[in-house]
């Protein structure tokens, strides 16, 4: 696995990141286009979700049911807010705490499973949860879902900044945990060879658990912000199709185990999805074909090629 740092010299990497952040902070609100702001807000929310999926990949936990955490937090936020009349911020905090605790509890049965079995076990969990949520219609509203969640703000620009700030905070936290903390080398050892890592005295279970709790908590954060932003939750937020499928596509297209890649992938997929809305009839077809092409032609994810391109450009500019 390539590390970002080895691909880019640190300075050019930081320069590119800073320029991107400044563009994100200044440009979209200045354009005053509510639709663009909506797409970018959704992109930020999905970026949080995609990064939370990616942190699990650091210890070889391919989750095909990650929408379970996203939906769980979205529904918890909705129920705390509408039934218990909690302030949305409190509801978000409570929902994230619940998802993290559920993630912790799930480690007991799920850490027996490896590889495809783990992935499918997670998918089963998401499927059962979706069916249950749909069946308990008197609490969750069934297929209709829950409407009328109190939004944090109704202002487009406000919502955009809330999502962007949450996304950046998650990005910085997860990126430094995964790539620059004392855990990063341990994660790499576990990912490359679990048995060898165990022989070196690494308590593999502990680090898988850390990744699972981080992954579920941040997926919960994404789901909770999603619920307060859209003010509506329905079983689709928890369903494997479309939500897990979406996040896995974002991660794969962006580039797995890079944290930044899946975040970029999220913006790209949300953007592609809305770009093809001009031709509603062929929207999904065009979107699926484009994503297929990206996967076939850039199998490592766009981030690895983007960094190469950025490095090349910076080298050209400097010389």
């Amino acid at each position: 696995m390539l590390r970002l740092k080895s691909l880019a010299t640190l300075s050019s990497f930081k320069i590119t990141g800073l320029i991107l952040i400044i563009i994100m902070v200044v440009v979209p609100p200045a354009l005053r286009d509510p639709y663009l702001l909506h797409i970018l807000t959704l992109g930020s929310i999905y970026a949080i979700f995609a990064m939370s999926w990616d942190i699990l990949m650091y210890t070889n936990q391919l989750s095909l049911g990650h929408s379970f955490f996203f939906g769980l937090a979205a529904y918890s936020t909705a129920l705390f807010n509408s039934s218990l009349r909690m302030h949305p911020i409190l509801a978000i905090i409570a929902a994230v705490a619940i998802t993290a605790i559920v993630g912790l509890g799930l480690s007991i049965p799920f850490f027996k499973l490896r590889g495809a079995y783990y992935a499918l076990g997670m998918a089963g969990l998401a499927k059962i949860a979706t069916l249950t949520v749909t069946a308990y219609s008197d609490i969750t509203g069934g297929e209709e879902g829950i409407r009328g969640i109190t939004p944090l703000t109704t202002d487009h620009v406000g919502n955009y900044y809330i999502a962007l700030a949450t996304m950046l905070a998650s990005l910085i936290f997860l990126y430094y945990t995964a790539e620059h903390s004392r855990f990063s080398l341990i994660f790499r050892a576990v990912r490359d060879d679990e048995v060898a890592a165990k022989c070196l005295g690494i308590v593999v279970h502990k680090y898988r658990l850390l990744c699972l709790v981080l992954g579920s908590a941040f997926a919960g954060l994404g789901g909770a912000v999603y619920a307060t932003y859209l003010t509506i939750v329905n079983p689709n937020a928890m369903a494997i199709i479309p939500t897990t499928a979406l996040v896995v596509t974002m991660g794969m297209v962006g580039g797995v185990t890079t944290i930044i890649g899946p975040a970029l992938g999220a913006y790209l997929i949300v953007f592609l999805d809305s770009f093809f809305r001009v031709a509603e009839n062929i929207r999904l077809l065009a979107y699926a074909l484009t994503a297929t092409l990206i996967l076939l032609l850039l199998p490592g994810g766009i981030i690895r090629y983007a960094i190469k391109a950025a490095n090349y450009l910076i080298r050209e500019v400097r010389s």
Partner: peptide, 11 residues
Amino acid sequence: VLILTFLLAIV
């Protein structure tokens, strides 16, 4: 492959 085939199903 997992994701690619998934996208094919959508196609």
